[in-house]
């Protein structure tokens, strides 16, 4: 993985994914390692973010590296009409690796083609968010002890949720059984289902949430956004159908864990937070270890 950009989870084989998760587990045991002394990592967030940006910057600083960059494009030459190519070529002069988030889909792939230093995609519009995907996989493996043969339930907006798309595609390496719960308007796109079919795996689709809870090893919740519905009435009809509360987990399996890429609004009731099955805040912490592992392996330090 040395010197290779990470743009899409499809860029990594099953073995490469496992390798990163193994290195991340080492960082979890020993998180402060002075591997990046004297190195500069650029953190270019053309679009705002809380968790992703802060966990990248935390990962870099825990390894003794320095960060340059910006957390919104408002104060940069992008405002003057500078192209992505010019911004990337300029920043690559000042850094050993570039972490970028941009609202335009495909911007990270393009950046990786013009940049002399490796790029890590921290989200390109509705397309890919591979570091979130790796931390989701890390969280699943850590809570279940394995990635193989699990029953994974995805709930909410499966159409636009990029974290759902990346995770479904990655789980196709691990013989997953998929349960897909969403309103009809927000079903998983066929381009993503194609990966499930190509891996000879099965999925089931539901509009009702409750029946699938007892089967699930992992319940991956997502936010349904009002602006996804052209008709506000349609949103009103479905908005409360995909909310998880503590009572619903009574008949969940013992090993079942709830994941959410966050931020949440109301789709997980706060009464779930104290349930031992709730795992979303630990999930966000795992992001630091996974990002440490990625940066270290791309720079050839692990």
């Amino acid at each position: 993985m040395k010197d290779r950009s990470l743009v899409s989870i499809n860029d990594y084989s099953r073995e490469e994914i496992i390798k990163i998760l193994d290195i991340a587990a080492e960082f979890e045991q020993n998180t402060h390692q002075n591997l990046l002394k004297g190195r500069v990592i650029a953190s270019l967030f053309f679009e705002p973010s809380t968790r992703t940006r802060l966990s990248f910057e935390s990962a870099i600083q825990k390894m003794g590296g320095n960060v340059v960059g910006f957390s919104s494009s408002g104060t940069t030459s992008v405002q003057k009409g500078e192209s992505i190519k010019d911004t990337i070529l300029t920043v690559s002069n000042y850094s050993d690796l570039i972490v970028m988030r941009h609202s335009v889909e495909g911007s990270a792939r393009y950046a990786s083609e013009v940049s002399p230093v490796p790029i890590i995609n921290a989200g390109d519009g509705s397309n890919q968010h591979p570091t979130q995907c790796l931390l989701d996989l890390y969280s699943i493996r850590k809570t279940q002890g394995t990635l193989e043969n699990l029953e994974v339930t995805f709930v909410g907006d499966l159409k636009y949720g990029r974290t759902v798309h990346s995770l479904v595609i990655a789980l196709c390496h691990f013989n997953t059984k998929f349960h897909l719960v969403s309103p009809l308007e927000l079903k998983l796109p066929s381009a993503v289902k194609r990966h499930i079919k190509e891996a000879n795996l099965t999925y089931e689709q539901y509009t009702d949430f409750s029946e699938v809870i007892p089967k699930s090893d992992i319940i991956y919740m997502t936010r349904i956004q009002r602006e996804r519905f052209p008709d506000p009435l349609e949103y009103e009809k479905v908005k409360n159908a995909y909310i998880l509360d503590n009572k619903m987990l009574d008949n969940a399996k013992e090993n079942c864990r709830i994941l959410h890429p966050l931020p949440r609004v109301n789709e997980i009731n706060v009464d779930v937070d104290s349930n031992p099955k709730a795992y979303y805040f630990e999930q966000a912490l795992n992001g630091v270890y996974v990002r440490q592992a990625l940066i270290a392996s791309i720079l050839g330090l692990k």
């Binding site: 335009v104 889909e105 495909g106 792939r109 390109d124 397309n127």
Partner: peptide, 28 residues
């Protein structure tokens, strides 16, 4: 990105169920 900046398009051609589809190299 190919519709936002001066980036030439690239596609993989998919053929599924007798339908031809283009999968974008950039936005996927």
């Amino acid at each position: 990105i190919t519709n936002k900046e001066n980036v030439p398009t690239k596609f993989t051609v998919l053929q599924t169920d007798g339908q031809i589809k283009l999968s974008c190299h950039y936005c996927e």
